[in-house]
């Protein structure tokens, strides 16, 4: 504890002191004692008994008999959330508009990627998520910084520095850029929903109170969905908030594992909304090329020069994200 030396802090402190003075602490103590008695799990009887036995010292015999009943009769087992309930709670938590930052480390399997005509891409990046929106900051093999993400409407955007950008409509599924970005993305809410639908979920207990709860999800084969994104997902959930602290995902393409991605929560923040859109990552006068070209007329349409520029931007992006060189150094800074 330190002394307050800021006038705002002092004002807030006086306000909280005044509010605290209105609280009836004895009423809270009585509520806590009343609420604790019947719900005490059997494994916690000893610690609770220390408190309750003292609380009842000098009390009526009937109360002692009642305590004896609670401590000696078979106790109702505390309701432990199932793996599916935990995943559902995590999905609810992550559906809220809170910004969370994860360190992402990828280990790629080159051979299965090659079969898909893809190459290993950057190994380390940082991902910010808010619901199903995300953006990723990464450094290519030459140390160049790249930022890309997916906005609320599902549109993929790429910022190639402050002056150049690309956007891809969700309908442009076949684009290699889409495929590469999809490999490293984490649409948290949708992924958790997928786990509830098509995976066998198992809960593992943490070692100590406060340790994360681990939930493992193994893909349940389903002929109706032959190409799931993940073969296995491991989640470490905060025991209180059910926020994902760590996640390990085995990424699949056409039934083969092409890589393993590890996400580690490093920060919870409060980002401006435009950080999930390209306008938050490029200057106002930047050239941002989308796929909306003029409608074709009769006969062969002349090639739109933007088409050529877009292809060039795309090639630049692909060149920069390829490579499995040394992991880049992170400065941990984000754009405000």
């Amino acid at each position: 504890m330190t002394a307050n030396d800021h006038p705002i802090d002092d004002a807030v402190r006086r306000h909280l002191d005044a509010e605290a003075a209105k609280v009836d602490a004895r009423a809270m103590l009585a509520r806590v004692k009343a609420a604790s008695t019947p719900a005490t799990p059997s494994g916690l009887r000893k610690a609770a008994a220390i408190w309750f036995s003292g609380a009842l010292t000098g009390g009526a015999v009937a109360a002692a008999v009642l305590l004896s009943f609670f401590l000696n009769a078979p106790m109702p087992t505390a309701q432990v959330a199932t793996a599916a309930e935990l995943v559902e709670q995590a999905r609810e938590t992550h559906a809220a508009p809170t910004d969370r930052c994860y360190d992402v480390v990828a280990e790629w399997n080159p051979d299965p990627l090659k079969k898909e005509k893809l190459e290993p891409i950057v190994q380390a990046s940082r991902l910010w998520t808010r619901g199903d929106q995300f953006w990723i900051s990464t450094k290519g093999q030459f140390g160049n910084k790249l930022e890309w993400g997916q906005d609320r409407a599902g549109k993929l955007w790429i910022a190639l520095g402050p002056k150049r950008g690309l956007t891809y409509d969700p309908s442009e599924v076949g684009e290699p850029v889409q495929r590469y970005c999809d490999l490293m993305s984490l649409r948290v809410v949708s992924t958790l929903g997928d786990l509830l639908q098509g995976y066998d979920l198992k809960r593992h207990e943490g070692g100590k109170p406060g340790d994360p709860i681990r939930v493992e999800a193994n893909l349940r084969p389903n002929p109706l969905h032959p190409n799931p994104k993940f073969g296995f997902v491991g989640l470490d959930l905060d025991p209180e908030t059910k926020v994902i602290r760590k996640a390990v995902l085995k990424r699949q393409l056409n039934g083969e594992t092409v890589g393993t991605l590890a996400f580690t929560l490093v920060e919870t923040g409060d980002l401006p909304d435009d950080q999930y859109e390209i306008r938050g990552h490029v200057d106002a006068d930047a050239v941002v090329l989308d796929g909306k070209f003029p409608p074709p007329g009769i006969g062969p349409a002349p090639r739109d020069p933007r088409d050529r520029d877009r292809a060039k931007f795309r090639e630049d992006f692909l060149k920069k994200i390829h490579g499995g060189g040394p992991r880049p150094h992170w400065d941990g800074k984000k754009k405000e």
Partner: peptide, 16 residues
């Protein structure tokens, strides 16, 4: 108040 009560209950259960 409900949240504070619940937090107390959980912490007191781990008083040992």
């Amino acid at each position: 108040d409900d949240i504070v009560q619940d937090c107390y209950c959980r912490l007191l259960a781990k008083a040992g």
